[in-house]
Nucleic acid binder design. Sequence first.
DNA 1: GCATTAACCACAG
DNA 2: CTGTGGTTAATGC
Length: 226
Amino acid sequence: MEEINCRSCIIKSTAAGILGEKELEIMEDNSAKVSFKKGEIIFRQGSFSSNIIYLRTGLVKLHMAGPQKEQIIKIVKAPAYLGIPTTFGDKINNYSATALEETNACFIDIKTFKQLIYQNGEFAYELIINMCKNELTNFHNWVNLSQKHLNGRMADTVLFFSRDIYRKDEFELPLRRSELADLICTSRETVSRILTDFYKEKILSVKGRGIKILKKKLLEQISKMG
DNA sequence: GCATTAACCACAG
DNA sequence: CTGTGGTTAATGC
């Protein structure tokens, strides 16, 4: 844990950017900065939660143990808030968060966070906008997952990492095959097969977790057609 | 029927 | 942890 200074933080959220000097000071006094190594769990499903977490840097997977197996709900890249649904919606975490790479986060006490929401409407408004956008992407996600075939879902995932996470055509997947399966609701075997299919058709270059998009147009077609 | 899609199992690097 | 082959089940021409 380190000294924390919200006022001089360069990577504060849009919402926190609205807070005044006094408010940031309150936040400062009630937050803790914590860093996580790759693979470390940030919060655990089933355990008590009393913090909102602000991801300053890094990449995280949100995952939930379902009745049958583990599901990856989504991949979150900093900067972002983590745990608003799980902390405001319940006393107990409904899902877990695990760092996929070196991650820095601020743990903000829930009481303080609530207090800021009560007293600063603009701050609250920014948070609502944020959550609305999240819900919209969740809706899209849900529909895509339900209606697209696996090739489409796999193409979606590759494009997601390329566009939203790494902003490159070449990157290292932060997930192994079985985790990709948990993300797009299939089996690890099917993930393997589709990736080798894409490789054979020269859509992707695949070396372990290393991915390079070779035929982006085609990949986008597959994503669109399902 | 026949083709497609994808899950499950087994086995081998 | 991955890739592959065989098998099986469901669904849609």
